[in-house]
């Protein structure tokens, strides 16, 4: 078995007196699509924040490719290739969509790698930005990449978030609820995108509430409850687990929820 690309070792985080994470350990292997699910307030976003350096864990260690990245600055971690999207989308609202991507292309990592498809050199940043946008689903030759971010619908903003990650040519993308707030058809068009990223060799960690789509793309799923890891396994294992049904779905039957989810 290969070494895990990302490893959380017994990570805990306290907010004041509240324990948001209680000793969570996690291994992510190269090429994985790992789903993290759990009820609201179970510490999912805290995991993202602590991996990407936006908060510092109270105890425990996080390793990326066997290098300790615990407590490093966010931009250092992003520079190593661990990128994230935000649950509440954070585009630069006053800028056109393609200029939103010009900014990450100024980062040292993008300059080294040349962007998503770049072969080590970065051409004209604006062209590269538009190319990335088109690849991620902004209509080719339309005016949409030139529209101000504040006028774009949610679906495009979520793609913009992903595009920001991709412009760094990441090794891991941690998606914090990319499906939430999207219509069914928008989600349906996002799923192949995720699969394509996986084919590109990018490891993906997804935090999701939309279980149906998650189970479709993920090869492993971890369930969090009250900051603790309940179970980790393949989607079918997780679905079958009694504890999960109890914690996540309450007393209802899982199949029933699945149909409505």
């Amino acid at each position: 078995m290969t070494d895990p690309i990302l490893r959380m070792d017994n990570v805990s985080k306290m907010f004041g007196g509240v324990r948001a994470l209680k000793g969570v350990s996690l291994d992510v292997f190269p090429g994985d699509v790992l789903g993290i699910i759990g009820p609201n307030g179970s510490g999912k976003t805290t995991i993202v924040n602590s991996i990407t350096g936006f908060i510092k864990p109270t105890s425990g260690k996080i390793y990326f490719k066997n290098k300790n990245i615990t407590g490093k600055k966010p931009h250092k971690i992003a520079d190593m290739g661990v990128t994230r999207t935000f649950q509440i989308m954070r585009p630069y609202y006053s800028l056109p969509a393609y200029k939103n991507l010009v900014i990450p292309l100024f980062s040292p990592r993008a300059r080294r790698t040349g962007g998503w498809r770049g072969g080590g050199s970065l051409g004209n940043r604006q062209t590269v930005a538009i190319d990335i946008l088109e690849e991620i689903g902004f209509e080719r030759d339309s005016y949409i990449p030139f529209k101000t971010a504040s006028t774009l619908p949610t679906g495009y903003l979520k793609r913009l978030e992903l595009a920001r990650c991709l412009s760094l040519k990441p090794e891991i993308i941690i998606c914090d609820e990319v499906f939430s707030g999207l219509s069914m058809s928008e989600i349906a068009s996002m799923v192949p995108l995720i699969e394509r990223l996986q084919d590109d060799g990018i490891t993906i960690v997804m935090i999701e509430h939309r279980l149906r789509e998650l189970f479709q793309v993920a090869n492993r799923v971890m369930v969090l409850n009250f900051g603790e890891k309940l179970i980790e396994g393949t989607p079918s294992e997780v679905m079958a687990d009694e504890q999960v049904k109890e914690a996540y779905f309450g007393s209802e039957k899982v199949e029933e929820v699945m149909t409505y989810a």
């Binding site: 990407t52 936006f54 931009h75 585009p91 630069y92 609202y93 800028l95 993008a110 990650c165």
Partner: peptide
């Protein structure tokens, strides 16, 4: 301007 708009996203883009 991006830093003013939204510093977190700039950090997440790997920019100091």
């Amino acid at each position: 301007t991006a830093i003013m708009d939204n510093d977190q996203a700039v950090k997440a883009s790997g920019i100091n």
